[in-house]
């Protein structure tokens, strides 16, 4: 989900620059504000995603260690 916000913010930033060159400053400003919000949300969501993934991978690693210990005991 976070990556989709960041990709969208890049498109919005490009559109903002294009509209600014055509003199549509109000639209350009609005697009700029949305770019900022999308980047902000995107970075937070990517951070949450990566934290969740690292925790699940740690859980998987500890499960594998348990399996190895159990096999050794048996």
């Amino acid at each position: 989900m976070g990556r989709s916000f960041i990709a969208s913010s890049l498109i919005l930033l490009l559109l903002s620059a294009v509209f600014y060159t055509f003199g549509e400053t109000a639209l350009s400003n609005t697009l700029g504000n949305f770019t900022y919000m999308c980047l902000f949300l995107g970075v937070i969501l990517v951070g949450i995603d990566s934290k969740g993934e690292s925790e699940t991978s740690e859980d998987q690693e500890s499960d594998q260690e348990d399996l190895i210990i159990r096999k050794g005991n048996s």
Binding site: R3, S4, F5, A7, S8, I11, L12, L27, L31, C38
Partner: peptide, 22 residues
């Protein structure tokens, strides 16, 4: 003019499109 509604719709469409694409 207030472009907020149209840009909100554009952002929603972009985010959902990228979400389904990814």
């Amino acid at each position: 003019p207030d472009y907020t509604p149209s840009v909100t719709v554009l952002t929603a469409v972009l985010v959902s499109s990228f979400y389904f694409l990814f």
